[in-house]
Design a protein around this nucleic acid. Sequence first.
DNA 1: CTTCCACCGGAAGTACCGGTAA
DNA 2: TTACCGGTACTTCCGGTGGAAG
Length: 393
Amino acid sequence: MNSDIIEEIISSRLRKKSRIFKNKEILHPDYVPETLPHRENEIRRLAEILVVALKGERPSNVLIYGLTGTGKTAVAKYVAKKLAEKAPSLNARLLYAYVNTRKVDTTYRVIASIASSLGLRIPSTGIAISEVYRRYIKALDNWGGLHIVILDEIDYYVRREGDDLLYKLVRINEELTKARVAIIGITNDINFVENLDPRVRSSLGEEEIVFPPYDAEQLFDILMQRAEKAFQPGAVSSKVISYCAGLAAREHGDARRALDLLRVAGEIAEREGAEEVTIEHVKRASIELEEGRIYRAASTLPLHPKLVLKAIIELVKEKGTGTTGEVYNRYFKLSLEYGYEPLTQRRISEIITQLDMMGLINAVVVSRGRYGKTKLIKIRKELIDLLEGAIKI
DNA sequence: CTTCCACCGGAAGTACCGGTAA
DNA sequence: TTACCGGTACTTCCGGTGGAAG
C-alpha cells in the first residue's frame, strides 16, 4: 500500500531525530558563519578601507579578486553587514546592496536591484534604464547616507553588457549632493580588469584585495568548524572531512564545493540510515553532484537545443565525434521527423556553443586545413546515457 | 607561398512577449 | 487604451580564418 510507504518514511525520518545532522543549514553555501577562518587578513583589509564610512567619509572603491569558493562573497557581505549593524549606534547612515550580476544579469535588473535595497520599488520592466537610474539618485539624496554596493561576479556582467554601468556608478558621486556610494567589485577573473575603460579601472580599483585559494589544510579547518555545528557528535570523522578537503583542494581550493560535498555525503548517509558519514559516501556525493547538475541542465533545455543535443548524442554513439555541419544535418532530419521547422545553421552553431558552456558537451574550434574550420564536438562517455535519459522529447 | 574549405562569429534587423505609464 | 521599454529567440548577411593540400 502506498500509504504504508509514506508512513514508513515519516516514521524513519521525522520521529527519530537525525543521527547524522544537527543543523544542515550551516553547510548551505549562502550561510555566512560568525567567523571566517583563514580570511582574517582579508577581513581586516576590507574593514579598514570601509570603516571611514562610519565617520561620514566616502571610502575607496574596492576590487576583490579570487577564484570561486575563496570566500570573497562571504567576506564582503560579512564586513558590510557588520558595519551596517554598527552604524546606528555611531549616528551614521549606512546601507549596503548585494547584487550577483551573474544571476541578476541585465543592466536594468542590476540597477533595479541596487535601488530596491534602499526600499525603492522598481517595476520588473517597462521604464527606461535612465529613469531607474534617476530614481535611484533621487532616493539616495533623500536618504543621504553611505551606500555600499557589492557587485559580485562583475566579470560576467561586463563581458555581456560592457562597462557603461560601471562607468556610471563609479562617477555617481559627482551627481549626488548628500549621499555617497562606494563600490565593491568582486571578480574571479584577474585579467578582466585589463579590458576595462581606463577611467573605470583606476576608479574601481582604488583598492584591490586578492583572495588566495584555500589549501587542503585550510579547507579542513573550514569544514571542521561548520561540521561541529552541523553534524551530530561522532557522525563525521576528521578522516572524512580531510578527504572532502582534499577533493575540493584539487579543484583550486573551492570551499563551496567542499561544503556541498560534505552536505550531500551526509544526506546520502542519512538516507541509508548509516551511523556515520564515510569516505564512500563522499565519493558518491561527488558523482551525484556532478550528475545532478548535468541532468537538471539537460532536462530543462528548450525544444531546439534538445533536438540538437539528441543529434549530437546519435552522432557520438555512431562515430565518436561530430562537426557543426554533421550535427546540423542530423538535427535537420530529426526536426522534420518530429514535425518541427528547423532553425538555421547560424543559430545551431550558437546552440552548440551554449551546450558546451553548460558542460553537457565538449566543442572545440579546430582548423582542419583544406577541410575547413569547424567545431569538433564530443561527449564524455559517462554522460551519454545520463543525457539520453534526460532529453525525452 | 597561395588557395580554399567549412565553418566561425559579429552586426543589424525582425517578431514577439510581458510588463509599465499616462 | 495606446505607446513604450527591455529581453529573448531567431534570421540574414557577410567578412574572417587556421592550416592541409597543392
